[in-house]
Amino acid sequence: MIGFILRRIVSMFVVLFALSVLVFLIFFATPGVDPARKMAGRNATPETLAAIRASFGLDRPLPVQYLRMMNRIVITRDVESYSNRGVRVIPEIMAAAPVTFALVAGAAIIWIVASIAIGLLAAALRGTLWDPLLMAIALIGLSIPVFWLGEVANLVTQQRWHDTPLFSWVPPLGYTPIGEDPVLWFKHLVVPWIVLSVLFVGFYARVLRSDLIESENEDFVRTARAKGLSERRVLVVHQLRASMITFVSLFGLDFAALVAGGALLVEVVFGLPGVGRLTYLSLSGLDLPVIMATVLYGAFFIVIASTVIDILYAFLDPRIRTA
């Protein structure tokens, strides 16, 4: 077990290194492009360009530049935004992270519950009209662009039907920290939670249904039936548990990807001040230090999270340790 953890951690550092090199190459060594120009954003003065060349050491060889960049992002953490002078990027990211986490965690609860319910129902009702109907709904959920769904939700809850009792409780777009006013926090997040979860409900319900139906022919299902268990018990207890393996491993990765910045579209549409929105705000000015830092932190988060998930898995399932 200790050997497995060590191996896993070593491989994690290899991947982290490779990822940071990749990010470095994307931002500093794109062929035919002057990185200082890029860093400075759209309307840069010659002074800014000179300052950037000096501060990132752009006249030095590439490996030195790489070390400088990593030093500034990970160790000294004094990368500054170019459009908002003096604003340090890393503390901003740390301040925005809890908002993103609240958004993703709430949506995750909805998508787990709803997709298990839909997947189970569809599998149980196979052969009736309900199964294709539920799967059609799941497919529609899977096909809707999330930013557009958010806008439609805003249109309905903020304006068209805002004055009806149905949506009069929805507060204006924005965010209140949970420590300030938990009720308002909740009200702010309900609509974004639902909007963010729709895609995943569709996807996970489809995956779960097909897994459940595949496990139909497994020996353990036949055994459970032979024991005289009710159909319902076989499905909910035996088949569902076996199907949860795919479900859980998908979930870990999706959750990490969303926290790392994948929830950006929803944050933008609902004006939630999370990490994704931080990235978004720096997009229009092409404020590359901010983008670079959020991208690197996002990628690092995912790699570390997937290592943790793997180690937890190995605790649960000894077969993985030797693999």
């Binding site: 492009v33 983008i291 996002g298």
Partner: peptide, 26 residues
């Protein structure tokens, strides 16, 4: 595997912001 570890949107954002100012020249 390493590119896979990158969330799609972050990679796409990194690539496009880095290329949008001056385009690409190979």
């Amino acid at each position: 595997d390493i590119v896979w570890a990158f969330p799609i949107y972050l990679l796409a954002i990194a690539l496009s912001t880095s290329l949008l100012v001056q385009g690409l020249k190979i």
